[in-house]
Design a protein around this nucleic acid. Sequence first.
DNA 1: ACCTGAACACCGTTCAAGT
DNA 2: ACCTGAACACCGTTCAAGT
Lengths: 233, 233
Amino acid sequence: MASQAEPGVEPRMPLSRERVLRAAVSVADSGGIESLTMRRLAEHLGAEAMSLYYHVTNKEDVLDGVVDLIATEINEVVERIDVPADGADWKKAVRQRILSAREVLLRHRWAPGVFETRTNTSPAVLRYYDALLGMMLAGGFSYDLAHHAMHALGSRALGFTQELFDPSGGGGATDQAADLAEMAGQFPHLVGMLTEIAHDDPDSTLGWCDDQTEFEFGLDLILDGLDRARERA
Amino acid sequence: MASQAEPGVEPRMPLSRERVLRAAVSVADSGGIESLTMRRLAEHLGAEAMSLYYHVTNKEDVLDGVVDLIATEINEVVERIDVPADGADWKKAVRQRILSAREVLLRHRWAPGVFETRTNTSPAVLRYYDALLGMMLAGGFSYDLAHHAMHALGSRALGFTQELFDPSGGGGATDQAADLAEMAGQFPHLVGMLTEIAHDDPDSTLGWCDDQTEFEFGLDLILDGLDRARERA
DNA sequence: ACCTGAACACCGTTCAAGT
DNA sequence: ACCTGAACACCGTTCAAGT
């Protein structure tokens, strides 16, 4: 009875940094990032919270490791894509790489928020950036323009953008319509825009915008702009 | 003696939501966002932590209020700019608005991180977006393109981008050079780029990149792309 | 070498009680 | 109406002690 495994996982197996980090990803995947506490992480591994500190220096270290693990998953996916030998169509290659990275992040929706808090760059993230940069250089970018390009892309280089604007107040469709009418006086342009969008696409119960479409629009806008800058140089 | 004011501020003055939120901004300004705890906030106001809950529902509410306060500060600045009556030069107007918003955020460096955690949109933020949208509509954007534009800009619309990549490891210049040489095998493109940049601008002790220059580069890239999309439509 | 129990300093928050 | 003391449930982390 006392030797029964907790709801967590495998009954008994030595801890390791690797195992701790994998468990951290799994906890965040199932309960969101706010559920990732040292105590809960330990419980998930059938150990005590204090045992983690033997394999990991502190919680910051766990988060650093988690970012590296997710970035490794991204690398495994994007490195399977075969990229045209001549770098002529750099745009296609970069676009595909970024959209593939995005697919990984969509499986770990909490991850972008963690990436943004890390100033520390993981080896896997550096590896990702290095290859992305390589594609641009092969496509004829100078170091200088490629550098601007990385900044212009920002988090889009890794496949995500943080949505600042989420008009879905949580209420039903009628609630939202009522809210809109009420706000029309204060925010005429916003309300005009949102009503037209709601009219054009009436079955968007989940929110106003198609995130994937908007991500691709912004990405293509930037890639096209970079391509023109490259031609001018 | 017992009636002496704490290090905080004014000796005695009734609390209010307004006063609590202003104090929160001031605490974050001087000690960073991680120093903003309910207990410390109360101390700053010469009150007990529990007293705050009479004026504010919880800490989330404080953060929502803080965002609204900063956005109000932004509005006060950008609404003083006089915008050309005819909307022809929308790009100039939008650019100036965004760079002015950025100046406010540079006075509250912790604020972008808080903005990103809020899905709740404050009235002041909505007001900011509404006016920005108005400039684009006046410049000849359709609602649809203006909507894409807002997503493409993302947090840039408010004047910031989150830096994912901070190569300044904290060591001195010689440390960094040594680090670079060591990494050259693993990340050749990255190292090539960074050494060229360091060579071209040898006195950038504070970091590799000029954030303001990079912000403006990305902003102009997007604005130019949007202008072309508008012309095509 | 690896794991843990007890303990500390700190959170956000509730609730009954003061004025 | 406004503020507070005591208390609770939860954090991350240290440290001395177990095997």
